[in-house]
Amino acid sequence: MFDSLSDRLGGVFDRLKGRGALSESDVREAMREVRIALLEADVALPVVRRFIDSVTEKAIGADVLRSVTPGQQVVKIVNDELVAMLGGALAEDGGDDHGKGVEGLNLDAKPPVVIMMVGLQGSGKTTTTAKLAKFIREKHGKKAMMASLDVNRPAAQEQLAVLGEQVDTATLPIVAGQQPVDIARRAMESARLQNHDVLLLDTAGRLHVDEALMAEMKAVAGVSAPTEVLLVVDSLTGQDAVNVAKNFTEEVPLTGVILTRMDGDARGGAALSMRHVTGKPIKFAGTGEKLDALEAFDPVRVAGRILGM
């Protein structure tokens, strides 16, 4: 079902063979194939439009049209532009936190440094919170505490408590009936008293159009002054990605995005939409249900995946 972009563009250029040098309209025809590839990969339509415009402009440059392998040239331009838009290639060494393109966590603030997790229902916030706690201890050598502010989903706070045991990280004791803003205050105080370096706040899933829950999220951010506000997004997300990205960006000061379920077989066009609409780096990729399945987001790999190559 999914032909690779190279094959499809190859087809386009084959049909054009024998017509001599490529014209601007030949490139435009090729771009129609790129457009379909991006849409099949679930890149959001407005983002596709802007991407195609920008790439077309580059591809109709004289060098491309006169080259002997215009098809490959166009594919290269598309790929390079996609990588750049996704955050740039990782450093050669596979990317530690200082590598080019790898945006780690900002933990350089007065402790407890607060990291707040937000996103739609079921996107992977709670699991990713626990993954980050483990990551922070192992990679940053810092002590983290986690608190669940989810008073909506049955057993959500228990879920985080169980995960806390699995990653050997303290969780804020559950007080039945306490509301999110008060839980956040109590968590701040507790983290301070117990000298935790980092406080991870897991929040309930919410729709970006749910005014009451969006207001609650803002209130939590208001009392906890988070250094990082991370939007957790399912990499299976389709066209709705733009709405989600836009609304969350407007409501809280996002510092980054985490894409979950990258271990699935989705083409992951949501990555491009997220990056483009939030303007924030994609800091990590979730690659499994296990609590060590967290990786630096790799723009080169994801670009290839989006293009089906």
Binding site: E40, A41, D42, L120, G122, D234, L236, T237, G238, Q239, D240, V244, G264, D265, A266, R267, G269, A270
Partner: peptide
């Protein structure tokens, strides 16, 4: 199926 999922729902 989650409505927020895109074309992967077909797979």
């Amino acid at each position: 199926l989650d409505a927020t999922n895109g074309q992967n729902a077909l797979s």
